[in-house]
Amino acid sequence: MKLIEELWTSLIESLGALGSVVRFLLRLLAASPRALLRPDLIAKQIYNSGALSLVIIMLSGLFVGMVLGLQGFELLQRFGSEEALGTAATIGLVKELGPVVTALLFAGRAGTALASELGLMRATDQLSAMEMMAVDPIRRVVVPRFLGGVIAMPLLAAIFSVIGIYGAQLVGVQLMGVDAGSFWSQMRASVGLSDINEGIVKSCIFGVACSLIAVYEGYYATPTAEGVGRATTRTVVTSAVVILFFDYLITAAFL
């Protein structure tokens, strides 16, 4: 009986939290049109979330691609179809690993930066000061960061996938001796637009989810050192779970 009660309260609490996140998202969307009038602010945030994450994304993409090249080659060799390595690696990267790993890295690199930045602004009264200067912090600070993340994430995922494919080629063709012509031509023949679309849809949705979680946690962080730390941790944990959950849903929807 007690267990059911506890489950019920935690369910209600989770629904309440979800509701406030959705309300926050609606507030961000309502403020977005006016925030778009200041493209310079958004560009700066694309730089912060996107350009500054490039090195980690490119390095990870290269290594993930190289591992795919090795594992894929090993597996396909058993069936004597190493030439399909290009297709296998590309589908794996574009549909799955590109968006998911990029989003996880994005949550760790850009998401935590956003959450701690907003949390510290809250803790040092900078957000209240803006409100007192009749400047809406949602429109001036939060929305540009949110939109910057939403725009940067699909671009990063695309870069991750492209570098990953080169990584797979590097190992498969240069190291393991798969024929370069069949690697590329099989890839071109078998990877369709729908595969790429799935990757784009995933990375866009992950971009919205990661950026939203980061700015929400930061904006509502308890204004203490501990509170900001907790907000940062929650950003990564919640993002990771949400990314993997949505990944399953979207994959199922595209079947």
Partner: peptide, 29 residues
């Protein structure tokens, strides 16, 4: 609020901006 000014306990300056830009902030907005 545009007719009010408030001085917060710790100043609450925007840490990304220089002194000049902090003072210019309300004017620019």
């Amino acid at each position: 609020r545009r007719r009010m000014g408030m001085l917060f306990q710790n100043g609450a300056l925007l840490t990304d901006f220089s002194v000049f830009e902090n003072v210019a902030f309300p004017l620019r907005e």
